[in-house]
Amino acid sequence: EHITKHPLQNRWALWFFKNDKSKTWQDNLQLVTKFDTVEDFWALYSHIQLASKLTSGCDYSLFKDGIEPMWEDNWNKCGGRWLITLAKQQRHTELDRFWLETLLCLIGEMFSDYSDDVCGAVINIRTKGDKIAIWTREAENQDAVIHIGRIYKEHLGLSSKVVIGYQAHADTATKSGSLMKNKFVV
């Protein structure tokens, strides 16, 4: 029998961030590995810690090969993110499921033609509440952004009463907290 791995549309890079205040932000960001098949994705996924087991201040990022998980990257700077903010108790109930669904949406290219607008996804483990976001490349591509948001919300199994927001990185970089404005909501 002829056995081959199942190729993904894109090669993806997993990054790990661990907050060490004695180092610069960039030094704290490490490339873990890259993969481009379904089988290699699962080999990696089963080898690493679940997000809920990471310590506060840590992030995982999964981005298309060639895109760094930071606003400043050329692929990201005009883009933004669909942000899921979780309540503290959701770390034990939904965080890992949400993150896995996010990863599957990315590697499976589940946003049809608009998948090209996806840059990657980030999960932030924080004491005050964890966050998951899908980053897209162009905040002005309204059709793409809205489509991605709707499909994403569906895959997370969020009820229609839950509203999620999309913020442009340019706005996030200059504002903070309650001043952060949603460019779109679904």
Binding site: K5, E39, F41, L104, I107, G108, E109, M110, S112, S115
Partner: peptide, 20 residues
């Protein structure tokens, strides 16, 4: 064409032994 995979298809591989 584009390599698009659905959720169920991807999950089917989660616990498969790795192939060479």
């Amino acid at each position: 064409g584009k390599k698009q995979y659905g959720r169920e298809f991807l999950l089917d591989f989660q616990f498969m032994p790795a192939c060479v």
